[in-house]
Design a protein around this nucleic acid. Structure first.
Lengths: 122, 122
DNA sequence: TGTTCATATGAATAATTGTTCATATGTTAT
DNA sequence: ATAACATATGAACAATTATTCATATGAACA
């Protein structure tokens, strides 16, 4: 009869690799930080938002201009700008009834570039 | 009676900003490239995958070790490793029945660092 | 004051996705 | 051969999310 594996939640090789796993565990950032990191990248993980960010990296733009540029509804753009705003990736200034959005982060372009580098090499 | 806006799909301000929009449009990368970029970041946009990538940045590990480390099922880890493999972010080598995964990209850490930089400043 | 315009937002819907469960594949050891 | 083990995978389910539609807000202007 076999020893029940789920008693320990560990496979056999973990016993051998325990040291490595412990070392890796030590080097892992806090749970919360990794969660925030994933949340940030999730914001980049949508074509519409990527396009908006790319557009804003060229020039500040108002909501309606972005909608025209991307051939999408004003509402869809506005919803996505809210997500970008919450992630502190864009900021805005009001001029009367027009709201101009712009990038709020120097890292956006660098994150882009690293991503494009990966893509172009694979 | 008002002129129907949807005839042109353009708001009033776009007429004024047309030049800017045209310039931005010129500078936008190809549609496909932006799609791929979003797909790449989507892969980073999940806590489990971020943790796996972080773990592998410390040391190569087998599937079962990762499962123990993250306290998740082997199946869940395996599914996510497939996603990472497809994105060419990890590679693997087989040693008998054990499969060791490792990072397949120098950019992973740099993308991480930029992300963490953004988070820590906001 | 009433109308037009630019933007924001809540609700609904459709599509995507992460995990679990059960099972398949392929390797090692007895 | 058979059993044990490490990993992979398909189907199902629950949860998340992007867009649309209708409408609200608030500014400019006639």
């Amino acid at each position: 009869m076999m020893e029940n594996k789920s008693d320990t939640d560990r496979c056999d090789c973990i016993v051998i690799h325990q040291e490595i796993v412990d070392k890796v565990k030590e080097n892992m950032p806090q749970e919360e930080k990794l969660y925030d990191l994933a949340e940030l990248f999730k914001v980049f993980g949508d074509t519409t938002r990527i396009k908006i960010l790319y557009a804003l990296s060229s020039s500040d733009m108002c909501v309606c201009d972005i909608a025209v540029l991307l051939n999408m509804t004003q509402s869809a753009i506005s919803h996505q700008l809210r997500v970008l705003k919450q992630a502190k990736l864009v900021k805005y200034r009001k001029e009367g009834k027009i709201v101009f959005y712009s990038l709020d982060d120097e890292h956006v372009k660098m994150i882009f570039d690293q991503g494009l580098l990966h893509i172009s090499e694979k």
